[in-house]
Amino acid sequence: MMSSRSRILGRIRHNLGRGPLSAEKAAELKTRIEEHRPNLVPKRTEISPAAQVDLFQAKAEALGATVTRLSSLDAVPEAVSRYLSDHNLATKIKMSPEAALDALPFDQTPMLDITRGAATAEDDVSLTPAFAGIAETGTLCLASGPDTPSTLNFLPENHIVLLRRSQIIGTMEESWARLRAKYGAGNLPRTLNLISGPSRTADIEQTLIMGAHGPRRLHILIVDDAEKD
């Protein structure tokens, strides 16, 4: 009996009026994939790095996220703490078990109860690092890994993201280049999340409601770092 696989491929070829592609044509298509040439990319982000940061913030805020700019990583614990009290949230966060987050001076905020790991249904606030920020649309790019579990991006009602200024880039295409540099061409982390604002739905009478299943609030801390100054 013919397998579904050969039946489907056979039917595709038959209906396209040809057999399997020639070695030449196949090599051409393989090169096309490996070159990963960009298609038309909007000019919107052909601006200075500083203007890209402003654009990222403006776009993210327009999507319903909130943004705080910090001058150094040392200011992060205090900013997190303030965010929790501003929103009447318990002083408790679940944090990505990442070395860079661990190195933050959380001894300045002894009231903050921090646990590390993947999210559980009880977690109300998460703090995670970003992989990149895409200025074009105010989109965060978050990559899963042993120290960046992706459930933290979805289960808690409040999601705080740490984004370094040097991680803000113009376009999706630039984030693909950075991902290839880190993971190798042809590879991606298990879960790559592009996140543009907090969760929402309009499924009841086309009325926009925030916080459908993912986080109701998305807060982005943009931290100045040396690389982009």
Partner: peptide, 14 residues
């Protein structure tokens, strides 16, 4: 401009 979540899933967990 973008939907809120665009998610790329690649293989099982590492």
């Amino acid at each position: 401009e973008m939907s809120v979540y665009t998610t790329f899933s690649t293989g099982p967990r590492r």
